[in-house]
Nucleic acid binder design. Sequence first.
DNA 1: GATGAATGAGCGTTCATTCAT
DNA 2: AATGAATGAACGCTCATTCAT
Lengths: 239, 239, 239, 239
Amino acid sequence: MGYTHDMALPRFSKLSADRRHRVIAAAAAEFAARGFKGAVLSTIADKSGMGKTSFYYYFADKADLCETVLDEAWRRLSASARVELEKLTAETFWPTFEKVARENLEMCSREPWLLAASKLLNRASPQQSDDTVLDAYQEKRRAWEAAYISRGQELGAIRDDVPTDLLVTISLSARQASNLWMLDRIEGLGSEGSSHLALHVFEIYRSLLSPPAAGIDPHDADGAAPGAEPPPRRHAPGA
Amino acid sequence: MGYTHDMALPRFSKLSADRRHRVIAAAAAEFAARGFKGAVLSTIADKSGMGKTSFYYYFADKADLCETVLDEAWRRLSASARVELEKLTAETFWPTFEKVARENLEMCSREPWLLAASKLLNRASPQQSDDTVLDAYQEKRRAWEAAYISRGQELGAIRDDVPTDLLVTISLSARQASNLWMLDRIEGLGSEGSSHLALHVFEIYRSLLSPPAAGIDPHDADGAAPGAEPPPRRHAPGA
Amino acid sequence: MGYTHDMALPRFSKLSADRRHRVIAAAAAEFAARGFKGAVLSTIADKSGMGKTSFYYYFADKADLCETVLDEAWRRLSASARVELEKLTAETFWPTFEKVARENLEMCSREPWLLAASKLLNRASPQQSDDTVLDAYQEKRRAWEAAYISRGQELGAIRDDVPTDLLVTISLSARQASNLWMLDRIEGLGSEGSSHLALHVFEIYRSLLSPPAAGIDPHDADGAAPGAEPPPRRHAPGA
Amino acid sequence: MGYTHDMALPRFSKLSADRRHRVIAAAAAEFAARGFKGAVLSTIADKSGMGKTSFYYYFADKADLCETVLDEAWRRLSASARVELEKLTAETFWPTFEKVARENLEMCSREPWLLAASKLLNRASPQQSDDTVLDAYQEKRRAWEAAYISRGQELGAIRDDVPTDLLVTISLSARQASNLWMLDRIEGLGSEGSSHLALHVFEIYRSLLSPPAAGIDPHDADGAAPGAEPPPRRHAPGA
DNA sequence: GATGAATGAGCGTTCATTCAT
DNA sequence: AATGAATGAACGCTCATTCAT
């Protein structure tokens, strides 16, 4: 649906919507599935019904193609979600984002290319990606996350008892993981299903960021009676 | 420190502890830094003071080497942590794992190769890694996570209001992200510092899994009056 | 200024003088700067404000384009110099060519495209160029050189004591090198400067071809006592 | 004949003399025939009986290979010619270089690889080569030429009435051209033939650099009556 | 008459892996 | 037990050239 570009060589924007779509979709799928380095240009070419070298007519190079996909997805996903942080209140904060999450998920379930692209977007582990392209996006994303968390803290909607840096990191990764999890599952679900799913996930995500319930000291795992249990079987690495 | 293997060609276990160590350490560093595909065998060879071809004497192939590193780390990390799930009680559940987390982090801060290996272990995004090797490990790890979460639920220590599958996913990713975050920071810290850090992080992680505080309905974002705010500036992609 | 063609597809001559000029100029610059193989058609296209594919409307292929430039330059340079060998005498021989040299250099300093083209013309090492196109030109040029040297010999203006073939080769190369040297320097100079320069260069060139001063036997490096000198420092490859 | 390297990866020096030889020879031939850019690695590989990728075991890249050839040739050619400029006298100056020229030419006629390499060495037109590698060599060579010409001028063996810069340029190019000319012809000749040839060429080269015979003013092409000649036939571009 | 779009052939380079010793 | 040497398969990218309009 309607791409507008400032990445990629300007020619790309002149392609018919259909071809543009196929290219983006094929690239998104390949990059999502195999990462930046792993993705093979010929594969994308084949899938998009385009000669391998034609990419170099539309894009500067592999990285540019990848960036274009990323941009496209980011733009699409933000479109429905131009949340204005400053206008949010304590009451609207969570509901707003829940709505965004739901809408975006539905969008992904409706537009297959977006699904793939979204997977790509949620892929890059912070700190350690394939290449600079994905890293750059992680940065962008993290910046947004930081802004929104910070706003949430002002409003008292997000916990304040933890280094923000850390909170951002965890929030981001939890979101990415859960997004990925959902994206892997919506293929069958209708949009109602998606919506329902998003709710569940959002709830748990929210509890991660919400201020800890007052009066509860996390450290005394206090109370209640233990129940001695059977013999051990497993080991548990923690780090 | 004392590797025992069932991965890798059996010959590897006959190497002197020192050489084995150097190999593992070099491989861990390279794999952690550049991922499975990105890692270059020659580099590992150089760093480990071993001829490139010798790897094929000790390991079946690149994947096998990587797996060996992974195994080694997993083993080391579990060693101090042979938690016996069945023996845990509601009271010991969280404290036990907090202890494990702390201990493991300290271990990593003491043994550099383990630090690298641990990064590797925490790297692979579920579902979408470089290669099958890391995926396999994700599986293993996920299995453990599932077992432990399930036990926590039995004990009432872990929330039950969400698809376990999803809970596992998020828990895993949050742990990985926070581990990575810590591992990237402990280089300077002493073991006390590490320990302190681990506590913070664990606390937030725990709040993620703990049953939602009773009486709080997350969904009614109820009450209070909104306050209209300044002009908008940002957009927020949600998926 | 006024191109007439027999190279290139006939269509080229129907282009407006201005467009023709731009094409030739752009091509000359690119070919001169990067050689036949190194020159990139797109670059020429961009510089000449012409679509890349239009070249194939006007020229058969890259070689044809290059040839056209070469022809153009050759023609222009000969235009002022339709020396009629047969009319030359011993007295007019050298002065005539000196004049030609001076005039041509001035022309190059006045018409930038000619400067570039001239560099191209003087570029190709005999025997070993990029491609057949330049080689062909070398041939043409060599033929002229041979004719003119032969005439000079008839008139006693050019030495006769050396295989003509060899004389032609050296003459050609020395001319090319000195032309190149001058062309690289005239950018700043006015036409007087150019003229002056040409004189210097011509003088040395002439001494190369002139019959050796009588009575001097080059081979008896005769006479005198050697003088032992200081310590050595350098080596000297000769071929 | 015994290569010693500081270029190329150190491994190359460990190759058997024979293989080293074949590689150098094949590379020299290809580079000489098609220039740096034009040379195709696979071709060299085939000719030298080596897998294409093996080059990357011995050389850093294409440029490194080329440089190695160049170095080898330069070294070989200088070996027999460690002329010590400071020890030369007016009497020994020209004879010395004549000897060097003769010896080097003979060497080339005896060692085919050197012939090819020598062609390569004499190929690069100053100012405008394929790539930086050849340019660098031109520089080196020019430096030597300048040193030797300057010494010749001190001794009165080389003319002083022309900008040195120009003299160097012309000298270099004339030498290169004549070398090339000879190299292309010695294939059949024995070493006596080569020697004889070298003499001829050297003589003309020498007359180029020697101080102009006193008492002759080149500019007054004086004397005699012109004789009008037949009709013209040719044109003569000068630049 | 002119050009945007598309492509095939080919090149340099990388790297895991095997061979021979 | 160990490794230097060699290589095949593959990939990203360039560029002259052609196709369709």
